[in-house]
Design a protein around this nucleic acid. Sequence first.
DNA 1: TTGAGAACGAGAATCATTGTCAAGTATGGG
DNA 2: CCCATACTTGACAATGATTCTCGTTCTCAA
Lengths: 144, 144
Amino acid sequence: MAARTRTDVAQRIAPSRRLTRQRVIVAEALASERAALSAQELHERIRSKHHRIGLATVYRALEAQVADGMATRLERPGHVYVYAACTPGHHHHLVCGRCQRVEDVAEEVMRPMLRSVRSRHGFHVDHAQLDLYGLCARCRAREA
Amino acid sequence: MAARTRTDVAQRIAPSRRLTRQRVIVAEALASERAALSAQELHERIRSKHHRIGLATVYRALEAQVADGMATRLERPGHVYVYAACTPGHHHHLVCGRCQRVEDVAEEVMRPMLRSVRSRHGFHVDHAQLDLYGLCARCRAREA
DNA sequence: TTGAGAACGAGAATCATTGTCAAGTATGGG
DNA sequence: CCCATACTTGACAATGATTCTCGTTCTCAA
């Protein structure tokens, strides 16, 4: 099961990049987190298991993951940048302000919106950045 | 006309903040730009008219504007942060990668999307960050 | 008009991120 | 399987945008 997950994550690393131990470690570490983490937070967690990995390596690996669509970079209130693993094909997120969990926005939610941007504004969208901050269903239920 | 604009911008500064000359200058400067600018770019432009204004003041004024909904902070490719004035009530943007102009997204485009996030995900949205990067209608026409 | 405290300007300080470079290692060809 | 090559890494220095500090100035309510 664990081995299975490892393989899954590793296989999503772009073929143009070397499959290094460090990249796999970073990808696994991020994928195993349900919440969004900053590069430094992720580095600390990785260090507890793999002492020798460098902070710059974590930054480089995350940058590559973002470039390859394996992860996204989000902004936490107060100009703090955090990363979250992406499900393939889903690049928009619901970020819960209470539990910090990140959920994918269904593509069916995006499509009609992008269509109307095109028709109303004549704007041709290359890249969309949609992040919704609020309270997830679970935290909302717990509230009551 | 110029005086008219000045008044408009100044009046949008939140009442809880002191109405200083510098805040008005920064708000006017940003509002008069159609394209998104970084804090430093804006500072340079302001300096050409008002020598004595400090860079930190520009940062502080922009931060206040963002907090008060007068402006938004966007990300230009390559981790560069830029600011753009907001039309009251419009906080989502279409950013043209060629001319750097920023256009507001019609609220009618957002509403159905937010509704379906609520119904599909049970997620209660507090704050949405939607920025669409691409080619505006004008640049697209010029292309042909 | 005046006092209290918010905001300013200049420059120093911070600190996340990126660059440098010698050493390590994935990968394709032989 | 082994090598050569070039991509990566780790440690640490450098960078540079943003924030902080502090003495001075200015807004604004009383």
